[in-house]
């Protein structure tokens, strides 16, 4: 069987870097992107440096994927930014930045990936939600709202893309020890973990486990679902 082609966004560091290496190790053809070049190297990995909300650059990248890989099987929309702040202290520039990356970026990649996937009548899209949305975390208003939009997008796209054999699901991680939560005070983190059914930080493997489930060929009847980790 041909190697599956997987595109992962936000691969420069954190969860995205882990996923790129994880799927390359498992024989996938891995394509990734982020605003900067990654500081790591994995055989069989191809990187594009771009902003996920830059439509022109994103469309150009997908044209290269179409030409050089002949299509795409899986998209993992991992790229995301967060900013912890009280609403009274949140500048509009921060709001736009978060919405651009988390919502516009996810939308753009879903759209362009689905264009490639629909030709093969097979596709798996996995978006990234967050437990901050169902937990209604104070200080995370815009981040949680942006990810609520991603959940809505996931649910509606699942229906729009089902006729093309494309499933669209989302994984909602708990906090994982990455740069995204580096600046969050420890007592806030402890309070958050207390609200999970299973009170620990998420591991990278917890996330790849859910993605593995969504992208399996046998998961062709699973779409429009959000799996939150930790029992949230």
């Amino acid at each position: 069987m041909d190697k599956k082609r997987i595109l992962i966004t936000g691969t420069r560091k954190g969860i995205g870097a882990f996923l790129a290496s994880y799927y390359a190790d498992r024989g996938f053809q891995v394509i990734g992107c982020s605003r900067g070049e990654p500081e790591w190297e994995v055989e069989g990995y191809r990187h594009f440096s771009l902003d996920v909300s830059d439509e022109r650059r994103v469309v150009e990248m997908f044209a290269v994927i179409r030409e050089e890989y002949g299509g795409l099987d899986i998209l993992v929309n991992n790229a995301g930014v967060a900013s912890m702040n009280h609403i009274l202290l949140t500048p509009c520039t921060t709001v736009r930045k978060i919405l651009d990356t988390n919502v516009t970026g996810t939308f753009l990649f879903c759209r362009e990936a689905a264009k490639l996937m629909q030709r093969g009548e097979f596709g798996r899209i996995v978006n990234f939600a967050t437990v901050a949305t169902p937990l209604k975390l104070e200080g995370e208003a815009i981040y949680a709202a942006s990810k609520a939009a991603v959940v809505s997008l996931t649910e509606v796209l699942a229906r729009e893309l089902a006729p093309f054999g494309i499933t669209v699901n989302a994984v909602g991680p708990t906090p994982v020890k990455t740069d995204l939560i580096r600046s969050v005070p420890k007592e806030k983190m402890d309070a958050l973990l207390e609200r999970q059914a299973i009170r620990r930080f998420g591991q990278m493997e917890d996330i790849s486990n859910v993605i593995d489930f969504f992208i399996k060929p046998e998961s062709n009847f699973i779409t429009g679902q959000v799996i939150y980790l930790g029992g949230v």
Binding site: R66, R119, F164
Partner: peptide
């Protein structure tokens, strides 16, 4: 409608 969507995508490309 789904066929038209596929056709428009192919036409743009």
């Amino acid at each position: 409608s789904i066929g038209l969507v596929s056709f428009i995508v192919a036409a743009e490309q």
